[in-house]
Simulated assay, not measured.
Amino acid sequence: MFDVGIGEMAVLVVLALVIFGERLPQVAQQAGRTLRQIRQMANSAKADLQEGLGPEFKDFDVADLNPKRFVQKHLFEDDDDQRAAGVNGSVFDDEPGYSAVGTDLEYGERPPFDNEAT
């Protein structure tokens, strides 16, 4: 937990007892109350943001704004589930014999050819 070992945690507990003495339960209660209020404000702000964005962004998650999560989501997650469901955004998904872009070809198999493509 926070890279704090058992010895360091014991020192912190002893230090807290020395500094706060008998007021330690009241200080802990106030800290818990403050943490709860901060969490409620964050959840309220998140709900207001999602409501303000409208129904187009109903799947929006604030955690996706974190650059690490953004890169992980868009570069390292497989899109196999989306391709299997036909959610690749192509207008040709419902045509017979059409294979979605990015599907694996067998050895020696030729990729599909579109005569209307430029």
Rank of each mutant, 00 (worst) to 15 (best):
Q30T: 06
R33E: 05
L53E: 00
Q26T: 11
G7E: 12
T118G: 12
G5C: 08
A84G: 03
L65R: 13
M41P: 00
G89R: 04
K73F: 04
L53K: 00
R36Q: 14
F113H: 14
P96Y: 03
E22C: 08
K58L: 00
G89C: 08
Q29E: 07
Q37H: 03
K46T: 14
Y107P: 15
N66G: 05
L53T: 00
L49G: 07
P55M: 01
G108T: 01
Q72I: 08
E106G: 08
I19R: 14
Q30G: 06
G89A: 04
I6H: 12
S44Q: 13
I19N: 07
M9H: 13
F113K: 13
E56P: 00
G89H: 06
V18D: 10
N66W: 06
F92T: 09
R23W: 12
G108H: 03
A63M: 10
D114L: 09
F113T: 12
Q29P: 00
R23C: 10
E109I: 02
R83W: 06
R23K: 14
F20K: 11
D48R: 15
G52Q: 09
D61R: 14
P111F: 04
T118V: 11
G108V: 00
A45G: 01
F2N: 11
G108D: 02
V18C: 15
Q29V: 04
F92Y: 15
E109L: 01
D104R: 13
Q50V: 00
V87H: 11
E109V: 06
L35F: 13
V11P: 03
F92K: 15
E106L: 11
D104S: 06
T34I: 11
Q37T: 03
P111A: 10
G102C: 01
D59Q: 09
P55T: 09
P55L: 04
E106W: 08
V4T: 12
A47I: 00
L105Q: 08
P112G: 03
F70W: 15
P25Q: 14
P96C: 04
R39T: 07
Q30V: 05
E95V: 09
V27I: 14
V27A: 09
L49T: 15
P112D: 02
D59E: 13
P111R: 05
D61K: 10
E51I: 00
V91P: 12
N43I: 03
K73Q: 12
G108L: 01
M9E: 11
V14H: 13
G21Q: 15
N115R: 15
V18A: 14
D64K: 02
A47R: 15
D93S: 06
F57P: 01
L24G: 09
Q82H: 04
E56F: 04
A47D: 15
I6G: 08
L15E: 13
L35Q: 07
A45K: 00
A84N: 06
P55C: 03
V14F: 13
D3V: 03
A31R: 10
A85E: 14
N66T: 10
V14M: 11
F76I: 01
A84H: 05
A45S: 04
D48P: 02
D59Y: 07
A47Y: 11
L49M: 13
A28R: 07
V13K: 15
R110Q: 12
L35S: 10
A117N: 11
F2R: 14
M41L: 05
R110E: 13
F70H: 15
R23A: 14
A117I: 12
D81L: 08
E106I: 04
L53P: 01
G21C: 15
K73W: 04
E56I: 03
G108N: 02
Q37I: 01
